[in-house]
């Protein structure tokens, strides 16, 4: 990991005005992304992961959206950038892969054309050159017979193949940052593993930094360098892979770890999940947002918890839980020799 962060996000807030009220989709999110680092953003659905990711590209801009805070890519401010400045960055400096490969490609254009369109938006190259680049890209992401397949339409591909096309498209201009928003959620398990391997190889070869958004901690174990756990619009804990897996500080993280589906063990009948309702983003409890679902609540919890180092000897391992460190270590349940934890009461 290099020392100079590529992407710095500070106190990012995103609110949406809706008929039901003000939705606080992203609330005081800060993180750093280093050169060729893989950051996994993990959390239940609705926790603001996609909004965070899309806001970096300006894709959440709308008359109903309000933004605060800052996000800088190589020092360039993204939140207040003009639409035109952002357009030049999109696809070139930051590229994004979306969740559903079945609907993310335009059904009426050939896939080659769709990638060429992106290349020619940024680089002044001839059609023939752009096409050659696409063939190379398709080869690189493992699409066989790329010279023929370049003229296929999206519906002629399977879901996994379409996601590879999306990856090829995202990589077409050598972006510094690749955001993958649940890139494998819509795919079946074997394809999931292939796509993740593809992404890992990619980082090795090109040095691209990756933000991997997922609701499944199990997905990130062999690809992420750092993890940010999101809950109700906030990052509640962040640290290296090992720190999060072996010394988790926030009770929400304990719950998430308990609900990992393990490939190396028989699948439980019912995946243990965190009890309680997912939070409303409109009316939120004061202080810690996880309070209503937390069984360790005490008198400090209504105070606003900053995301900060609370352990001392682990810089970069930050969390938002008021519990004293020793107490946390006593209260969580770690099963021996396993990655992760079992949720309390969910051990079978």
């Amino acid at each position: 990991m290099s020392t100079q962060p590529l992407l710095e996000v500070d106190h990012l807030k995103v609110d949406f005005r809706t008929d039901e009220g003000l939705v606080h989709a992203v609330d005081d999110v800060s993180f750093r992304l280093g050169q060729s680092e893989v950051l996994a953003v993990v959390g239940e659905s609705g926790s603001g992961k996609s909004v965070t990711a899309m806001t970096l590209m300006g894709l959440t801009r709308s008359p109903n959206a309000r933004f605060e805070g800052s996000a800088r890519l190589r020092g360039q401010e993204l939140i207040t950038a003009s639409d035109d400045e952002l357009r030049k960055l999109r696809g070139k400096e930051i590229a994004m892969i979306f969740q559903d490969p079945m609907t993310s490609l335009n059904p009426v254009h050939r896939i080659g054309k769709q990638i060429v369109e992106q290349i020619q938006a940024h680089d002044d190259v001839s059609d023939a050159e752009a096409r050659d680049r696409v063939v190379t890209l398709l080869d690189r992401v493992g699409i066989p017979r790329s010279r023929e397949r370049i003229d296929s339409y999206p519906h002629e591909f399977s879901g996994g193949m379409r996601q590879r096309v999306m990856i090829a498209m995202a990589l077409s201009c050598d972006p510094g940052v690749l955001i993958a928003d649940e890139p494998t959620t819509a795919l079946d398990v074997t394809i999931q593993a292939q796509i993740l391997r593809e992404m890992r190889d990619l980082r090795e070869r090109t040095g691209t930094s990756i933000i991997l958004v997922t609701h499944d901690l199990g997905v990130v174990a062999d690809i992420a360098d750092r993890i940010a756990v999101m809950y109700s619009g906030r990052i509640v804990e962040t640290g290296t892979l090992d720190e999060i897996f072996y010394d988790p500080q926030h009770p929400y993280t304990w719950g998430l770890l308990g609900s990992i589906a393990r490939i190396d063990r028989p699948r439980p009948h019912r995946l243990p999940s965190i009890p309680g309702q997912p939070p409303s983003l409109i009316d939120r409890p004061e202080g810690c947002h996880f309070r209503p679902r937390c069984r360790h609540e005490f008198e400090d919890c209504p105070k606003y918890p900053e995301l900060e180092g609370r352990i001392g000897q682990a810089p970069g391992h930050d969390d938002r839980c008021w519990l004293p460190v020793e107490e946390k270590r006593d209260r969580r349940v770690v099963a021996d020799g396993q990655i992760g934890l079992e949720a309390e009461g969910a051990t079978a």
Binding site: M57, F98, Q118
Partner: peptide, 8 residues
């Protein structure tokens, strides 16, 4: 959304 993300 994909089209927007391409920077066209």
């Amino acid at each position: 959304r994909t089209a927007r993300a391409k920077g066209i």
